[in-house]
Design a protein around this nucleic acid. Structure first.
Length: 329
DNA sequence: CGGTGTTTACCTTCAC
DNA sequence: GTGAAGGTAAACACCG
């Protein structure tokens, strides 16, 4: 099975799809995200074939980035001016390739939003879709990642975030474990990766003292991170809103306004909204009309990561964070 | 103005 | 045969 990253194709076209090539490029970066120009560069560096007809394949690649939900767009940090956004892999796309191979995906990755849209909900109710790994709610996966981060930060402890109490259409969130080289753990776990959600309209901004800032993946895929964890029902669509759990390592480094408390050499770009969105911004007050909300967000004060050992209780205090709603395209 | 991002359309290949 | 996945072209909008 050919492995990615081997420059062994000379001028022949490598057997990888643009999605695979892009995923390789993103995966190869320390921050697990790259601007478009760097993705181009990576591909041209590794595969001489792509040093020609650049306009053709770059157009295709851009098409793939926009078209495929497995890629998410992350706005540049204010202090990183430049053209275009960063591109990262969607948290749920880790199990996308058969046996970890980049050659062909097992199936096209679709965000749950798009799935919800495409699987039009019948007038009389809810379509219950069997959930595979790829279908598992992002909250479950991010919860898993958050716990991984917690255990990395507090080795030897049993740091655990409270489980996300939400799942798609009432299906409980379940932990996801994948072993493929190109899986979510390998690719994204060290970082916080958001999913497609939008701030819920009409809700309060991040609570004072809350650990993170809010992930906001717009309808075009732009996002901020890290995430808060909530689950509610979208007041407009009536669909379940997936809101994600925070990732601990970021929460220690950033304050609620999304400003880094400290920076390290490999700190990820801080995603900020490309432009203020009426949805993204602080809003009047917490709405009670948006359905049940199950808070799984975590407030992490620096140094507060010492969980009671052997306890199943949350390692960190939970707070109610503003509910967010999944964006639909 | 050029790079980036989105969308649509059409085609081919492949798996079921 | 059918549908999904992937590739290509093209038009258009946005933005630095």
């Amino acid at each position: 099975m050919p492995r990615p990253g081997k420059d062994s194709y000379g001028n022949e076209k490598p057997p990888y799809s643009y999605i695979s090539l892009t995923a390789m490029a993103i995966q190869s970066s320390g921050e697990k995200m790259l601007p478009l120009s760097d993705i181009y560069k990576f591909i041209m560096d590794r595969f001489p074939f792509y040093r020609q007809n650049t306009q053709r394949w770059q157009n295709s690649l851009r098409h793939n980035l926009s078209f495929n939900d497995c890629f998410i767009k992350i706005p540049r940090r204010p202090d990183q001016p430049g053209k275009g956004s960063f591109w990262a892999l969607h948290p749920m796309c880790g199990d996308m390739f058969e046996n970890g191979s980049f050659l062909r995906r097992r199936k096209r990755f679709k965000s749950m939003l798009r799935q919800q849209k495409s699987h039009a909900v019948a007038a009389d109710g809810i379509q219950v879709k069997p959930m595979s790994h790829m279908d598992a709610p992002p909250s479950a996966l991010l919860h898993e990642q958050a716990n991984m981060r917690l255990s990395q930060m507090a080795p030897g402890t049993h740091a655990q975030l409270p489980p996300p109490h939400c799942g798609l259409l009432g299906v409980p969130a379940q932990p996801v474990t994948t072993k493929h080289p190109f899986n979510i753990e390998n690719i994204i776990a060290p970082e916080c990766k958001p999913a497609s959600i939008l701030p819920h309209p009409g809700l309060a901004p991040t609570l004072p003292g809350h650990c993170g800032y809010t992930v906001c993946v717009t309808s075009t895929g732009a996002c901020t991170w890290p995430v808060h964890g909530l689950c509610s029902t979208d007041s407009i669509t009536g669909l379940p809103s997936m809101v994600l759990g925070p990732v601990a390592h970021v929460s220690r480094d950033f304050i609620s306004q999304g400003v880094p408390l400290k920076t390290s050499g490999n700190a990820p770009a801080i995603p900020m909204p490309i432009k203020p969105s009426p949805l993204a911004l602080p809003p009047p007050a917490v709405s009670q009309a948006s359905g049940p909300v199950v808070p799984v967000a975590v407030s992490l004060a620096p140094g507060s990561l010492t969980p009671p050992s052997g306890s199943s209780s949350p390692a960190v205090p939970t707070t109610v964070a503003p509910p967010l709603a999944i964006a639909t395209r």
